[in-house]
Amino acid sequence: MRRTLISLVSGTIFGAGLAVSGMLDPVRVRGFLDLFGRWDPTLAFVMGGAMIPMAIAWLVTRGMTNPFADTQFHLPDTTRLTPSLIGGSALFGIGWGLAGLCPGPGIASLATRPVEAATFVVAMLAGFALVALIQRRSRSAMQGETV
């Protein structure tokens, strides 16, 4: 219950931050990527601003054995640069540039622009489902080979 509440508070502040920073406006987000045109640096300030508390938080974790509401940290420990990481991120960037929307603003905009945001979120979930399907199939195929 406490963990769920912490998560809700985190998500709510996150969504509020997106709204305050102008990141719910696809034209502004796309503007950051329009480096050779009408460049809008606002997103750089958002990312820079967000990294300040997070950098401090990472330093604080060094002195902690576990987070406040859990018995252990659950953090990614992979360090390998894989084709999936690079190709997937490039693909994400293409989609981001096409509509000026990434997952956070897309979901937060359900409150402000429900039709457009729902279109984006449903499409994004379809993309999630496609990847999950392929990954689960290849995993079960691999298990089939070893049995």
Partner: peptide
């Protein structure tokens, strides 16, 4: 451009992520 609002909203996003990290370890 909105550097001031961007920075404030960004700080909020960073605080939100810090709450998740320090609270739930995620």
């Amino acid at each position: 451009a909105m550097p001031g609002q961007g920075l404030i909203g960004g700080l909020m996003i960073g605080i939100a992520a810090a709450i998740m990290l320090l609270g739930n370890g995620r």
